[in-house]
């Protein structure tokens, strides 16, 4: 299982980014992978959805794409 410290760091980085600008799921995924590169696809998606559940970001469509922000 992924190290929880990396995940906590990834959550902080994603939270800060979402406060600065709206991000698509792909942006968030790439940001996460800079901190937790070694996870499998399934783990990445599972951990990211848990992070997003905790952050509870707003969402809006920009340029026809869903964006999340805080």
């Amino acid at each position: 299982t992924p190290s929880s410290s990396n995940i906590q760091l990834a959550e902080k980085v994603i939270q800060r980014s979402l406060m600065r600008r709206p991000m698509t799921t792909k942006d968030i995924l790439k940001k996460f992978q800079t901190k937790c590169p070694g996870l499998s696809k399934e783990q990445t998606i599972e951990v990211l959805q848990q992070i997003m559940k905790r952050l509870k970001p707003e969402r809006k469509v920009m340029n026809d794409k869903m964006h999340f922000y805080l």
Binding site: T25, K26, I28, K30, K41, I45, M52, P57, F68
Partner: peptide, 20 residues
Amino acid sequence: SSSEADEMAAALEAELNDFI
């Protein structure tokens, strides 16, 4: 590869649509 990122982003978005 970016197509893998696209695929994962789509899967994540589907999960997020369920509850956000």
